[in-house]
Simulated scan of single mutants.
Amino acid sequence: MATRKQARKQTLIQVLALLIAVVVIVVAVVLFQSWANSRPGAHPNDIRITATVGDESMEVAPYLVCVPGTECPEGEVPNMYVGEDDTLKLDIPDDISRYQWQVLSIYDNPAANDETRHGAGEVETVEIPGSVDPIEASESDERPKLIVVEVSAVLVGADENGEEQPYSSVWSLSTMSDEEMAEQEAQE
């Protein structure tokens, strides 16, 4: 049978072992958090948004990425048809949603255009209707149809020297049918 002195010694060793384990875990968590916060994110040029309509899905690359106040070269605007009764779903990656960002929905009737702003970490998915209810002030009963969607944010990225700086970034997606695209190109 263990004596009282041996029992105290054993209890002291267990408490010390537990204390050491807690300190090691706390240090590991702090180091991991520090590493996770300091690692560089993706450059805005490399960030993609996923657009989905029904079973069809596509990755949307940035249309514009530039340092604010500089000339911005335009990229390609991909097209994904969104019917009047369809809903466009945009999955916004963490590299965008952890900052403030906004969505601009442009319809064929400018009075129906809509802009929504999202705070950091609020939303990672947005759904945009392919058409909206007719505008009361409009002479037509036609439902305004979605033609372009833009997601924009100011993100942090590294320049050629590895220095962090802000980048104005815009992802643009056309939602017109092939006929509507051909008609618009003919008008230009």
Rank of each mutant, 00 (worst) to 15 (best):
T116Y: 02
A186C: 04
P73H: 02
C66D: 04
W171E: 13
T11W: 14
T52I: 02
K9L: 15
V24I: 08
S97F: 05
Y99F: 13
L155G: 00
Q33I: 06
D55C: 09
I96N: 04
S172Y: 08
T50D: 10
D55A: 14
S57T: 15
A21S: 12
T52D: 02
G75E: 07
E160C: 04
A2V: 09
Q33L: 13
W171A: 10
E183L: 05
E139G: 15
A112D: 00
P166Q: 05
Q6S: 11
P78Y: 11
S57I: 05
A112H: 00
V27S: 14
S38M: 05
D159K: 13
D94K: 07
E160M: 11
A120M: 04
E163N: 15
A182F: 00
E188I: 12
L173I: 06
P62Y: 08
A137P: 03
D91Q: 10
N161D: 13
T50E: 10
Q102S: 15
I92N: 00
V132I: 06
V26I: 11
G83W: 06
A51F: 11
T52K: 04
E188P: 01
A7V: 12
L155A: 03
I147E: 13
Q10W: 14
S174Q: 14
V67T: 15
S131I: 01
V123Y: 00
E179N: 09
E71R: 11
Q184G: 14
V67P: 08
E150C: 05
C66F: 07
M1F: 12
S97K: 03
I106V: 03
A21W: 11
Q33C: 12
V65Q: 01
L173R: 09
D55K: 15
Y63A: 00
D91C: 07
P73K: 07
E164H: 11
R143E: 07
P93D: 08
Q102D: 01
M176V: 06
Q14G: 08
V149G: 06
L90H: 14
V53A: 15
V148Y: 02
E179A: 10
E188N: 11
V67F: 07
T116C: 03
V53Q: 14
S172N: 04
D55Y: 09
A21G: 10
D141L: 09
E164A: 11
Q184F: 15
L19P: 00
S34F: 11
V123G: 00
E59K: 15
P68H: 03
P134W: 08
R117A: 02
L31G: 00
M1R: 04
P44V: 14
L12E: 15
D85P: 07
V23K: 02
Q187C: 02
P73V: 05
V65E: 02
R143H: 08
E183I: 00
Y63P: 09
L16V: 10
L155E: 01
V77P: 07
T70R: 06
G121S: 01
